[in-house]
Amino acid sequence: MKTSKKITGGLLIGITGFSVFLIIAILIFMLVMIIIGAKGEFSWKFITQFPQNGMTQGGIFPALFGTALMVIIMSVAAVPFGTITAIYLTEYAHEESIISKSIRFAVRTLAVVPSIIFGLFGLGFFIKFIGTGMDNMFNAGQLKWAQPNILWASLTMALLTLPVVIVSVEEAIKSVPREMRDASLALGATKWQTIRKVVIPGARSGILTGTILAISRGAGEVAPILFTGAAYYLAKLPTSLSDQFMSLGYHIYIMSTQSTNVDQTLPIQFATTLVLLLLTFTLNLSAILIRVRLRKK
């Protein structure tokens, strides 16, 4: 009996250890493949130059710039909105109330909706509905807003990343001890004063973590911006909210499917992948570090 238990235990340890090894091995294999594939294409020039010769040479600066600008606009929309929702859920809504339950259900559902659906929604809602409405109202029906641009793409991405923000901020707000709120209320603070001066400052690192996680998610996604703002190639950087933009993820996609010269673009494609991976990896790592610091407190 004892020996059989020992064998089962040993077997379990073996299987779990192998799984861990497999995961790490796959990750390392991918990284090595990408680095080899990039063939030294990855350099400072690569990230600061425009693509050249029909994107068979040169860098990816506009794609990097476009991604950065897009995630900034996205955060400006998603973080305040998500934070307010999280505050409502944790501080005001009754845990068991229908409103609270339906919001939570909606958030959970949003989190699992395939990203291409967000793209289609963005096309239908922002471009066709709001964009057309804006054009009719402000531009006498002339086409300006009812077409893909960086604003609609960012807002679509904001919808996609909203659950990430809401969940992280909620967790952070819950980690602010009840005693702190009690202390504030016992001093004669109103609920809103307590939230503003004790709860939100206490949840600051959680809000930051949520923002970074949302950015890292948004930076890598392609489907939501496919119809709502990403461009194949642009000779200049976007300067207005109604401009289209280039993005890293989309750049990888078009280079692997629409290239005029596959052999020449392959290293560029790998190098772009490496940039995107490093970007999301750094963002995720900083989110983890902030979270660890938050837990320690």
Binding site: M180, D182, S184, L185, A186, L187, G188, A189, K197, V198
Partner: peptide, 29 residues
Amino acid sequence: RKKIGMVFQRSNPFAKSIYDNITYGPKIN
């Protein structure tokens, strides 16, 4: 609640400076 001070079982200073902990209540008032 302004008329009635309360001290809790677990000490619960705000994650602020000593000075800001004391001025929290007066500032609210």
